[in-house]
Every structure is written in structure tokens, then in C-alpha cells.
């Protein structure tokens, strides 16, 4: 590599090293940078600084469209404004009616589940953010928002619009945040089919989403809505993601080919919402993690605990409560009744 610097043109570059030497230096530097960045997060600080440096350019670039939007709204005539006002009023009335119904349903649901009080919504607070720039080139589906660490934005934060899930933040700068859209080929979101409850994973495929892991006989059809399943630890449960637009079942393929269109209307949005979720809510991504098998295993291995109690139990249980055990399926009630004692005696 260093031999490159010993060319005939060397005398030209006496001042600051030969280009061959400099090239070797910078090439090694880039490879080291790539290595560190690939091996996860050694370069978060470097990125933070570079993102701050990039922000003025991004802002500059986004100013013509922003100015155009501002101009368009400021020269809108009275008629159009009045029409929009009427439309928004109607929409607000609709939403109020629906939220009234929603509160009643939430209360009813809480009663049905035997909870003492209705749970607050899982979203704790949210922050509107403007889209500074957006990149939708097929290879990369990402955008930059005008909120960053100074607004409390953190990495892997969920981003929504009024219609559904948009994506999550991947790099946070001081005043800006980069968001990877759910349609990016490197992004996957755990979803549930709302109609059937079937869980799967929606992978970005450029302009739309693909569901590559569904067997050919899975119960899914065009028009089904996908909502977040709450697994994966980033998105809370129950937010709308996409609608199925195409289902292909090939007789020779073991898997169905399903395509879904995101519900979020990124093309027409100029503002999106960053959401903070309540950590201790059952529907929250964090709660799902501690509630799930992984979390339970940490606090006493329940899938093994009941069995350890049940295994010696049959002799005693059969002797003491023989009629009950005979009437009911023998193993089904046992874990349920046996579960509390070990949990109590464990600590």
C-alpha cells in the first residue's frame, strides 16, 4: 500500500505528505471506523457530533418545501379555510364520540378482567415533530426529525402518525433524530393479525411490508389489519401498522407470500409524533418483556417451579383429593393451584 506513494509525481506533494501515504492513512481510518460502527455502538458519540454538524444542511435543504407549505396556507382564501374548519369540526365531533365509547369500553374491559381501576392509556406523553428530510429510495427508508436529545428523544423510540406506526429512532443527535421507517428493508416489526390474533413478523420491503414467515395455510386474507403485538421490546401492543393488500398461496411453496401496505400516510405527513410509553403498563413494550417468559425466568423459573411441586404431589394429592382429581383433568388445575406457594416461598 505504502508503495503507492513512491510514484514519479512525488515531488509535487512535498508539503503535506504524498497522496499515497495519505490515502493509506484514510483508508485504514475508514476501515477502522466501519469495524467499530459494525461492532455496535462504539461510535455513538462520533455520530452524535456528526449529526449535529449535518443538521444545518438538512435544515437548509428542508426550507424550500417548508416555505412552500407556509406560503400555501397563508394565501389560502377564506372559503377554503372555512371548509377546512367545518371538516375539522366534524372530525373532532366524530373523534369525541368515539373516545366516549372508548372510555366506556375500557372501563367495561377493566371490570371484565377484574381489575380494580381502569388503566391509564399506555402512551404517557407525546411530542409532535416535523419531518426535516425523508429518504424513500427503496434501499433506504429513513427520515430526519427536528427533535433530538435536547427534547428528551431517545434511541429506539416509537414514531407514529394519526393513522398508524411509522418507525423508530435509530440515531439521536442533539437537535435531530434519524428515524428508520417500518418499510426499510432492514426493519422488522412484530405484529398480530387483528382478526385472528395470529402473531408474525412484518419485514420492510421498500415501499410496503412483507410477511415472510406465514405458512401457506395461515388464516389471513386481503383487508386484514396488522397491529403491533407488543413483543420485541420497542413498540407497545395494539397500535395499527398495516393492511394486507395481497396474499399469494403457491401450491409448491410452504410459505404464503403476503404483502401489506402501511397505514401511516408518510407521503402526506409533515408532522409526526414521538411517543413515550408508561413502563409499568401491561401493554408497554418494557412490561411485555418482564411479563413474558424471559422476565419470569429471572424471578424464579415458574415453568419449572410448579412442576417441581406437582411431581411429588400426585401421591399426596391423589390420596387427599381423589374425587376432585378424578373429576377434573388431572394436570390442568395443578399448576394453577401450585403456582402461588413457590412464588411465596422463593424469596
Amino acid at each position: 500500500m505504502a508503495a503507492f506513494g513512491t510514484g514519479a509525481d512525488r515531488p509535487l506533494y512535498g508539503r503535506s505528505g504524498s497522496p499515497g501515504f495519505k490515502f493509506t492513512l484514510y483508508a485504514v481510518l475508514s476501515v477502522v471506523t466501519m469495524y467499530l460502527d459494525q461492532r455496535q455502538h462504539y461510535l455513538e458519540h462520533v455520530r452524535y457530533v456528526l449529526q449535529a454538524a449535518a443538521y444545518p444542511v438538512q435544515l437548509l435543504v428542508s426550507s424550500p418545501p417548508a416555505a412552500w407549505r407556509w406560503l400555501k396556507t397563508s394565501v389560502q382564501d377564506r372559503q377554503a379555510l372555512r371548509a377546512e374548519n367545518a371538516r375539522l369540526n366534524a372530525q373532532q365531533r366524530d373523534l369525541e364520540l368515539r373516545s366516549m365509547r372508548f372510555e366506556a369500553l375500557a372501563r367495561e374491559n377493566a371490570e371484565l378482567r377484574g381489575l380494580r381501576e381502569a388503566l391509564p392509556p399506555v402512551a404517557e406523553k407525546w411530542l409532535p415533530a416535523e419531518i426535516v428530510s425523508i429518504q424513500q429510495s427503496g434501499l433506504r427508508q429513513q427520515m430526519v426529525l427536528n427533535r433530538g436529545a435536547s427534547n428528551g428523544v431517545f434511541k429506539n423510540q416509537a414514531v407514529l402518525d394519526a393513522h398508524g406506526l411509522i418507525g423508530q429512532t435509530i440515531h439521536v443527535g442533539p437537535w435531530s433524530a434519524e428515524v428508520i421507517l417500518i418499510t426499510d428493508p432492514e426493519h422488522a416489526v412484530p405484529v398480530r393479525i387483528d382478526r385472528t390474533g395470529l402473531r408474525t413478523i412484518a419485514v420492510g420491503s421498500g415501499a410496503s411490508l412483507a410477511l415472510p414467515y406465514l405458512p401457506a395455510n395461515a388464516d389471513i386474507k386481503v383487508g386484514d389489519t396488522l397491529v403491533t403485538s407488543g413483543l420485541g421490546g420497542v413498540f407497545p401492543e395494539g397500535y395499527p401498522v398495516a393492511r394486507v393488500v395481497a396474499v399469494h398461496r403457491d401450491a409448491v411453496q410452504p410459505l404464503a407470500q403476503v404483502r401489506a401496505q402501511p397505514l401511516a400516510q408518510i407521503d402526506s405527513d409533515s408532522e409526526v409524533v414521538l411517543v413515550w410509553f408508561r413502563g409499568n403498563h401491561p401493554a408497554a413494550p418494557g412490561a411485555a418483556e418482564t411479563k413474558g417468559p424471559g422476565g419470569d425466568l429471572k424471578s424464579g423459573d415458574p415453568s419449572h417451579q410448579p412442576q417441581r411441586v406437582v411431581h411429588p404431589a400426585p401421591a399426596a394429592a391423589a390420596a387427599v383429593a381423589a374425587p376432585a382429581a378424578a373429576a377434573a383433568p388431572s394436570s390442568a388445575p395443578a399448576p394453577g393451584t401450585a403456582a402461588p406457594p413457590p412464588a411465596g416461598h422463593q424469596p
Partner: peptide
Amino acid sequence: LMLDVFQGPLLGEHALALSI
């Protein structure tokens, strides 16, 4: 490096290509 910040998933990728 600036290109990487704007459009690279990996820091250093465009830097290496453009250096070469």
C-alpha cells in the same frame, strides 16, 4: 464521512469508497 451521516447505514463506508 458526511455522506455516511446522511445516507450510510455504516459510518466509514462512503468514506472508504470516496477515498479510493
